[in-house]
Simulated assay, not measured.
Amino acid sequence: MVTQVLFAAKEERWTEYQAPLTRALREVGVEANLGTDLPNEDVEYIVYAPNSSVQDFSVFPKLKAVLNLWAGVETVAPNKTLKAPLARMVDHGLTQGMIEWVTGHVMRHHLGMDAHIINPDRNWPAGAPPLAEQRSVTILGLGALGAACAQMLTQIGFPVNGWSRMQKDIEGVGCYSGDAGLKAALDGADIVVLLLPDTPATENVMNGESLGWLAQGATIINPGRGPLIDDDALLVALDSGQVGHATLDVFRIEPLPQDHSFWAHPNVTVTPHIASETRTWTASQCVAENVRRGEAGEPFLHLVDRSVGY
């Protein structure tokens, strides 16, 4: 039997994915008819980007699974027409890219690199930075990306705490969960990395109160989701010195509007949503494996719990 796989994403993504996805399906032994314009009544799997024109899943009577090309599923999970399983993207390329970006920015702030790189007055500041073991890092979100970043930072020597909705157990990481655990995880943190999903429960998790729990002059690094931060509260904390610097890769509106206060603030670094992205080949391997599992009657990988939104 030939498996019918619809690719539903922007046209330029099809150009990028057609060859690697065809190859990946072949390598896992799936004979597939892969295309962007299949009859609705034949479609069994949808390789999906949330910005696709496909928004009504009820028109696919044989649909077995929707396989998301993005790590984020916050705009897909609430779709009431979707009854089939939804899998999010968790692939090596995405994880490794996030590890590298987070580690780079943590080290930038830990070592105080800006004072040497941006030094128009040619100052000769004295003193070395503390060792990693003297600088605490907290990661909010201990899913695949957060756990991988936490493990890397512990290897460098940072004491790392993490917080998640459900209790986790990660070697070398202090794991907290629940409402009470959030304050314990953030209390006195020098650097905070945000890798939570965007859900009603996580919106504005960093607000006026929680920013006050951090060490004076703490650094915020957000490669997760824009709504995790109350923008106005962060600006107040930056102006008061409670937060020393914020490196932000994601925002409530993207691209970040030209008149937004983050652009001009001297203690904010804006990066254009580049912390990590899916690589076509590794992402194609993940999609193909889930199609193979579906056809073999095996459990899908990385299924979304749609009751919580991720």
Rank of each mutant, 00 (worst) to 15 (best):
M1Q: 12
V2I: 14
V5M: 12
F7Q: 06
A9K: 10
K10N: 13
E11C: 06
R13T: 13
T15N: 13
Y17P: 06
P20N: 09
P20C: 07
L21D: 03
T22C: 04
R26I: 00
V28W: 10
V28Q: 11
N33F: 09
N33H: 14
L34W: 06
G35L: 09
V43Q: 10
I46V: 15
V47Q: 08
V47F: 07
A49S: 15
N51F: 14
S52N: 06
V54K: 00
F57A: 03
V59R: 15
F60H: 01
F60Y: 15
L63F: 13
K64A: 11
A65R: 04
V66G: 10
A71F: 11
E74P: 10
T75L: 10
T75S: 14
A77C: 03
P78F: 09
N79E: 13
L82W: 02
P85I: 00
A87G: 12
R88V: 04
R88F: 05
H92N: 12
G93M: 11
L94S: 00
G97R: 07
E100Y: 03
W101H: 14
V102H: 09
G104P: 10
R108E: 14
H110N: 09
L111A: 11
A115I: 12
H116Q: 12
H116I: 04
I118R: 13
D121H: 15
D121M: 14
N123H: 11
A126G: 09
A128I: 14
A128N: 13
P130H: 08
L131R: 14
A132G: 03
Q134P: 01
V137Y: 04
V137T: 01
G141C: 03
A144E: 11
L145S: 07
L145F: 08
A150Q: 07
A150D: 06
Q151P: 05
L153C: 04
T154W: 04
Q155I: 09
G157C: 05
F158L: 08
V160S: 01
R165F: 07
M166V: 05
M166L: 06
Q167R: 07
Q167V: 00
D169E: 15
E171D: 15
G172R: 03
C175F: 01
C175P: 08
G178P: 00
D179M: 08
G181D: 10
A185K: 06
L186F: 07
G188P: 01
A189P: 03
A189W: 01
A189V: 02
I191W: 03
V192R: 00
L195Q: 05
P197L: 07
V205L: 02
N207I: 01
N207Q: 06
W213R: 04
W213E: 01
L214Y: 09
I220T: 12
R225A: 02
D230S: 02
D230W: 05
A233T: 12
A237Y: 11
A237T: 13
S240H: 01
Q242F: 06
V243T: 04
V243W: 11
G244K: 00
A246K: 00
F251G: 08
R252F: 02
R252Q: 12
I253R: 11
E254F: 12
P257I: 01
H260C: 07
S261F: 10
F262Y: 15
W263F: 10
P266K: 05
V270D: 05
V270G: 12
T271Q: 11
I274W: 02
T278K: 03
W281F: 12
T282H: 08
T282R: 08
C286P: 00
C286L: 12
E295Q: 14
P299I: 09
P299A: 14
F300G: 11
H302D: 15
V304L: 10
Y310G: 02
